[in-house]
Amino acid sequence: MSEPTTFELAGHAGKLHAQRWPAPDQPRYVALLCHGYGEHIGRYDFVADRLRADGAVVYGVDHVGHGRSEGERALIDDFDKVVDDFRLLHKHAAAENPDLPVVLIGHSMGGMIAARYGSLHGAELACLVLSAPVLGRWDVIDGLLDGTIEPTPLDPSTLSRDPAVGAAYEADPLVWHGPFKQPTLQAFHTELERINKGPDLDDVTALWLHGKADQLVPYAATLEGWRVIADEGDHAQTYAGARHEIFNEINKLDVLRDVTRFVNQFV
């Protein structure tokens, strides 16, 4: 597994920690990784390694308030600002690889960000992959906003059937282990409303992947949002028994094989 190089970007609320995983040979495409809530891009080494083996040079960034980036921990007051931050990564990667197609892969909250990015800048992407994205509605957010759900930290057992994944998550000092913050909850709600109003994913072909046993971001609610934004020609794939982090699930090799098969239709 290759060690990534690191660099910084000037985000909307301070310095952003970014990483680049080089391709083992001449790269065929650029893959941008967009991580989920409370975590950081360092948790995607395995995903990056599989993409590198497929011929990608891979880039990722810790969102504001996450990982090694600046900002109050796990505080996001407007996700469109995070979309703008992610655009800095895209421009940086494109400048370093001007002749290569660019693929965007987002997970969970990062899937929501990626969906918004695809609706605004899809013409600049070869394709889009959404892993267990927050789309449509997220009842957890609404319950926390109206006080019907107790604001507790994420349950690591919801991530994967592999207990080592939850244990590593709990022990990771760069992961946010506290409860949601009120401005972040409201920002989720606002961003979902924006995505539901459009524009749709008219300019980029997308693949939605989801575990059917996902308790954190349930499949049914995301399906509602997917039907709103998906265009003719977009694709969906589900995995029976899989929980939220399908890139860390016991069938992760199958999932990532599905990702690279899809991507290779467009690069």
Rank of each mutant, 00 (worst) to 15 (best):
L32W: 14
L154E: 01
I76C: 05
A94N: 14
I76G: 05
P179Q: 03
A220T: 09
F266S: 15
V134T: 09
A95P: 06
G166Y: 07
G111N: 05
R87M: 14
W176Y: 15
R73A: 02
Y59V: 13
A126L: 09
R257M: 12
V61C: 07
E8F: 03
Y219H: 13
H63R: 05
E224Y: 11
P163E: 09
A167I: 13
R261A: 13
D45Q: 14
S108N: 03
M112D: 01
H92M: 14
G118A: 11
P98Y: 02
A240G: 14
H66L: 10
E124V: 14
W138Q: 08
T238D: 12
V61P: 07
G71R: 04
D234V: 06
V83M: 05
I195R: 00
T205H: 06
E249C: 11
A240V: 15
E124I: 14
R116V: 03
P199E: 06
H17G: 10
L120N: 11
F188T: 04
Y59Q: 02
V140E: 13
M112L: 12
Y117W: 14
D25W: 10
F262N: 12
H121F: 15
I195T: 06
N264M: 12
L120Y: 03
R87Y: 08
F79H: 03
A115S: 15
P153H: 05
A48S: 09
L144F: 05
F7E: 02
D139Q: 15
W138P: 00
L75W: 00
K212H: 11
D85R: 08
D99K: 07
D78L: 04
P218H: 05
G71L: 06
Y44H: 07
A213M: 14
T5I: 07
L207G: 05
T205F: 09
A23Q: 09
F188K: 00
N97I: 12
A13I: 13
H12P: 10
A171H: 04
V204I: 15
G67M: 12
A23M: 11
S157E: 14
